[in-house]
């Protein structure tokens, strides 16, 4: 399996960041950065990472079952993550969540039929003073209202 040049360069550097013989340290970052490029964790990717880091497949499966950002299933090109934890809840995070579900017609961890947008209710994303906050892939949006969410989602749809 080959990765983009950029990713290959990143991996080459990354492996040197861990003590000799302990390159397994690179496992989680490698999976996450590769997932960002490929869209999901595929069987092929698991085999490749297993080979490169000399870790067993099962060690990778263990990690996949633990970290919420790593996913084997395909998600939408834009993954909309809405925080409903306390600081966001106090400022309308739950209403935002309901609003998004209604607007997109999908539920938690589901993807729109055209594959463009997926939705997830997430725990605190560290934007509590600018709540309610949402993440679209890695982009933060602060002080979101139902209206600004509508605009954002419409924008994501036309961008595809």
């Amino acid at each position: 399996m080959t990765f983009s040049q950029e990713l290959e360069a990143r991996f080459a550097k990354m492996i040197g960041n861990y003590p000799p013989g302990r390159q397994k340290g690179a496992l989680i970052p490698m999976l996450l950065y590769a997932q960002d490029d490929i869209g999901q964790i595929t069987d092929e990717l698991i085999d490749e990472v297993s080979k490169r880091l000399s870790v067993k497949r099962v060690e990778i499966e263990e990690v996949l079952g633990y970290y919420t950002m790593l996913h084997r299933e395909k998600r939408g090109r834009r993954h909309v993550q809405i925080c409903t934890n306390v600081s966001c809840m106090l400022r309308g995070g739950e209403e935002l969540w309901e609003h998004a579900r209604g607007k997109l017609g999908i539920g938690n961890k589901q993807t729109t039929a055209d594959g463009s947008i997926s939705l997830e209710e997430v725990e605190c994303i560290g934007a509590c003073s600018w709540a309610p906050a949402i993440l679209v892939n890695y982009d933060f949006h602060f002080n979101v209202t139902p209206e600004s969410l509508d605009e954002l989602i419409d924008g994501l749809r036309t961008k595809q």
Partner: peptide
Amino acid sequence: STHTGAGSYECGEESALLESLEGKR
């Protein structure tokens, strides 16, 4: 160097963080 987490509150607990740094749950 930086090291990215991948979604886990418990990985903020220092010993869990070290496990995560080593490529484990």
